[in-house]
């Protein structure tokens, strides 16, 4: 019997996602917005790993259409998703922060409301 119900994880992930989205929506500061996005990515990762742990084994075992997977080989899809998301988050942070620094050099600020040069 599972020691922790799946929905506990889903609740935590939902909370993380919402808080992250709130941060991304309300903050003026570009770096704070980036932090909100990182929180959202973390929420997605928690979900992916939780589903890997609780759902994926069944799915693999029950499938068997394209591959005769036995009861004991576990798919690693959830973990692979999480690894890929973490790698992409790193790439995103590197490029995003490079942009912030470049903007700061030309604008002496990184408040997003002031980045309105393209507005008609």
């Amino acid at each position: 019997m599972a020691m922790i119900p799946l929905w506990w994880y889903l609740m935590v992930a939902a909370g993380l996602f919402t808080i992250g989205l709130y941060g991304a929506l309300v903050r003026k500061n570009a770096v704070s917005v980036l932090m909100g996005i990182e929180l959202m990515l973390n929420a997605v990762n928690v979900n992916a790993v939780a589903f890997w742990r609780y759902v994926s084994p069944t799915a693999k075992a029950a499938a068997g259409a394209d591959r005769p997977v036995g009861d004991f080989v576990v798919g690693m899809d959830g973990q692979v998703f999480a690894v890929v998301v973490i790698a992409l988050a790193a790439a995103e942070a590197a490029v995003g922060l490079a942009m912030v620094i470049a903007l700061y050099r030309s604008r002496r600020s990184f408040n997003l409301p002031q980045m309105d040069q393209l507005q008609g």
Binding site: M1, A2, A14, V55, A61, D71, F72
Partner: peptide, 24 residues
């Protein structure tokens, strides 16, 4: 509403959780 919906969905949806998710 978003967190309410996410919570409700996560709690009530019938996830095909394997009896234990305890892997051999």
């Amino acid at each position: 509403p978003l967190i309410f919906l996410l919570g409700k969905w996560g709690f009530t949806a019938n996830w095909p959780v394997k009896a234990a998710a305890i892997l051999p």
